[in-house]
Simulated assay, not measured.
Amino acid sequence: MARIRILQGVAGADFSWSPGDEVELSADEAAKWADGYRAEYADPPTSKQAQPQLATADELADDEGAATAEKAVPRSRGGGRGRRTETR
């Protein structure tokens, strides 16, 4: 079991957490919630499995990226409200 400190208010069907609350969850659930935005570990995790593995500088330098550069979308995908055709 791991304890996390809530940073953003979260509510569900059978729970409600406010910022500053400390909640005890299973190690898997705590790892999902403790992303630095919604919650953080109240006590640092003891096992290396619970801590995310970060890439080293050498690994990042070896990464060549995508084979071709990505292109920006030339226009909106059409979502949202259309323009008004007349004004009063």
Rank of each mutant, 00 (worst) to 15 (best):
L60Q: 09
A39V: 11
T56L: 13
L25I: 09
E24H: 09
L54D: 04
D14P: 01
P44Q: 12
K48M: 02
A66P: 00
S76A: 13
F15D: 00
A50F: 08
S76W: 07
G80N: 15
P19N: 06
A30F: 03
K71H: 05
D58Q: 05
A66K: 02
D63G: 03
G80A: 09
A13W: 12
D35R: 12
K71Y: 04
A61D: 09
A67L: 08
P19E: 10
P52V: 02
S16N: 12
S16A: 13
G12T: 03
A11I: 09
E29P: 00
V73H: 11
D43Q: 07
L60V: 01
E29R: 08
E24F: 08
L54Y: 08
Q51Y: 10
E29Q: 09
G9T: 05
Q8R: 15
E59A: 06
P45F: 13
P45G: 10
P44S: 02
S76P: 03
I4H: 07
E64N: 03
E24P: 00
G80C: 12
A50Q: 12
A39F: 14
T56D: 10
S26V: 09
S76L: 14
Q53N: 02
I4S: 05
K32F: 13
A11F: 11
Y41L: 10
Q51F: 08
S16L: 06
D62R: 10
Q49K: 15
V23I: 15
K48A: 13
A34R: 00
P19L: 13
A55W: 08
G80W: 15
P74I: 13
V10F: 10
A30P: 01
A61F: 15
A69L: 05
R38M: 02
G9Q: 07
S16P: 03
I6K: 05
E64C: 03
P52K: 01
E40D: 12
G80D: 10
A34M: 00
D62K: 14
E70R: 04
G79K: 13
A27S: 15
D14C: 07
T46H: 13
P44Y: 08
D62Q: 11
L60P: 01
P52H: 10
A61P: 01
A55H: 14
V73F: 10
R38Y: 01
A50Y: 12
A61K: 13
L7E: 11
R38A: 01
V23L: 06
E70A: 11
A72P: 09
L54I: 04
A27Q: 15
I6M: 15
R5Y: 12
A66S: 03
G20N: 03
L25E: 03
Q49S: 14
G9C: 06
T56Q: 11
V23S: 04
K48V: 09
E59I: 00
E24K: 07
G12I: 02
G65M: 07
G36D: 01
D14T: 13
K32T: 01
A13H: 14
A66T: 04
E22L: 11
A31K: 15
E70W: 09
V10Q: 13
A69M: 05
W17E: 00
P44T: 09
W17S: 00
W33A: 11
A13D: 12
D43C: 08
A39W: 05
F15W: 00
A27H: 14
R75F: 15
D28C: 06
S47Y: 10
V10E: 04
A69R: 03
